[in-house]
Write a protein that binds this DNA or RNA. Structure first.
Lengths: 245, 245
DNA sequence: TCTCAAAGTGTAATTCTTACACAATGATTG
DNA sequence: CAATCATTGTGTAAGAATTACACTTTGAGA
């Protein structure tokens, strides 16, 4: 398979580079993408089987070394594009990990980005069967320090989704309020009151009625909404939220 | 002066290393510290005059390349210690900047850490007169992309201080409620109601009455409190704050 | 002892959050 | 085509949190 051999050769390349870095005493810089998706009412993360003997059968995040003449953000978009074929996606830097022993082959400092994509809509080309959507909540061991990275990104997401409208990136353009609520309930692991949830979103005034309804549901169909980014943008941001800790 | 010559030689060293990195096509990794202090009811940041011709007379953050066998966090503490003599301080990673052209001498990716220190209490040894506490609000041009970095760190601080008790790091161990309120008002650039401010902090139950009073104030002295870290720690953290954006 | 400047304190109005139940709808089935 | 099913859609009242607001107390200094 073409895709597979391309990936294989890329990996050999990485290993060679890392070896070289290590012998020259140079610190490598990589980007690791934590790619979240939402499917079957569960939060998923896109992982790949580690190719290192040291981490046999362990899952790892999608990452790569950055290029010398490439902005850091650009590297993140590139990696995402290479692995998923997508470029119109939500992507945000979360944290940088730089402990000395975190990569066995060489000293590598990695900058972590979170990406949120809509699994259904994009139907990314997972030709390569080493790629896998894994449930976030039932993930134990991972390669490198990737479990720790994932945990931090998941916490980041839980917090972030309550303050910024990133959740919509995980849903189709048109969605029902039930889908939206399921998303929040899954990510935050809470049960929310349906009426209060609706009231809250309507009062925030960021949803737009598409005039369409759900189809193919075995019950009364709900209205479909879309996120109105312009309205959201126009809202004024406050520096004062209230002290609470 | 001993301190000065040490710094000068260190800087030459950096320049040499950067030159070498650039000619070898290697990406350097640095840490930049945004060191906030609070004095005379104003938020200050510790800066140094840039030593690059390109940025003559511009202020820059305190930074250094990381060492090969040093954890990233450790590098941040080291730099802080080298520049201020302090090691028992609040320090937190904020964001990594990796645009290609951000450093004129070489490709350098920099990881930014925010540090909060109490200017009065520590009396750091600013022997070197190129070091300077600058008002955050009246800072225009800076060297490199440091103004952008500072802006982002300042926004980070404004948000963070409302959710976490980091503000206390900027105050003496014992402080009056007025001092605390001045701190919040200065950082957030808002006026707060004195009674509501007190009510809020007392209801959060993180302040401890020291039994002491202010001295040397030309008016009725206020009680002195200290932050009770244990009580704060014991509070349970919620994943659910409420959606709002 | 008088003045000054800031400390210390309570309450009522408002806004936000939570808890809660029943009728309407469209799809499916017998 | 009538009955059933599952889920949508909707309002209100109680409680909690936030806001706005003014007068008395205290110690220092003149």
């Amino acid at each position: 398979m073409i895709a597979e051999s391309a990936i294989t050769s890329r990996r050999k390349n990485i290993k060679t580079i890392l070896k070289q870095l290590e012998s020259d005493g140079i610190i490598g810089i990589s980007v690791d993408c934590v790619i979240f998706g939402f499917d079957e009412n569960e939060l998923k993360v896109l992982l790949i089987k580690s190719d290192l003997k040291r981490f046999e059968d362990k899952w790892s995040l999608l990452g790569d070394l950055i290029n010398n003449h490439e902005d850091l953000d650009h590297a993140a978009y590139r990696i995402l594009k290479e692995r998923t074929g997508l470029d119109d996606v939500y992507l945000e830097q979360v944290k940088t990990f730089g402990e000395v022993g975190r990569h066995p082959a060489a000293r590598v400092v990695t900058v972590t980005y979170c990406s949120l994509i809509n699994i259904q809509h994009h139907q990314l080309k997972i030709l390569d069967n080493e790629l896998h959507w894994h449930r976030v909540t039932t993930l134990n061991e991972m390669a490198f320090d990737h479990k720790k990275i994932l945990d931090i990104c998941y916490e980041w997401l839980q917090k972030r989704i309550q303050e910024h409208p990133l959740g919509f990136s995980l849903l189709p353009k048109k969605f029902s309020l039930r889908e939206l609520q399921n998303l929040y309930e899954a990510i935050l692991d809470v049960k929310l009151d349906r009426r209060n949830f609706r009231k809250k979103f309507f009062s925030m005034d960021v949803l737009e009625d598409t005039g369409e309804m759900e189809t193919d549901v075995p019950h009364r169909p709900g209205k479909l909404y879309r996120f109105n980014y312009e309205k959201y943008q126009k809202k004024e941001r406050k520096t004062w939220f209230g002290i609470d800790f």
